[in-house]
């Protein structure tokens, strides 16, 4: 990740604080989401390595850089990303579904 001052950038406006009580939690959200992204980057690189080894039997850094996914590979990667993000957010989504259910039950009462 580039440092925010990697170019002669005017000062960034301060980030909004959504939670007055839990500023540390907000910082952790950014850390966790960056970590999640980095893991997916490593996974995609591994996928490239596997595909190159399957087709060529060998792999170099230059091969990885030059690898252009075909349409099927692209679609498979999109699908993997969606499933991956769904797993990461699964708890939050389950909570929302439960809350929605509760709301529906309340309306039915």
């Amino acid at each position: 990740m580039a440092a925010p001052d990697a170019f002669d950038r005017p000062a960034r406006e301060p980030r909004p604080a959504f939670s007055v009580d839990e500023p540390i939690a907000e910082r952790l959200v950014r850390v966790v989401m960056n970590l999640a992204a980095e893991l997916a980057v490593v996974r995609e690189r591994l996928d490239t390595v596997e595909r190159l080894l399957t087709t060529k039997g060998s792999v170099t850094t230059a091969d990885i850089e030059a690898f252009t996914p075909d349409e099927a590979t692209d679609a498979a990667r999109r699908e993997w990303r969606e499933a991956y993000v769904a797993r990461i957010f699964a708890d939050l989504e389950a909570e929302i579904d439960a809350a929605r259910q509760q709301l529906g039950d309340r309306a039915a009462d």
Binding site: A36, A37, V41, E44, R45, R77, R81, Y84, I96, A99
Partner: peptide
């Protein structure tokens, strides 16, 4: 984008979409 940069943009896009479509309605 390089190989890894493209992967990073892809996953950030996927997270953005999920945050917008699945979590936002919550």
């Amino acid at each position: 984008p390089s190989h890894d940069e493209r992967a990073r943009l892809g996953i950030i896009g996927a997270m953005k979409l999920r945050v917008g479509r699945r979590l936002r309605p919550g």
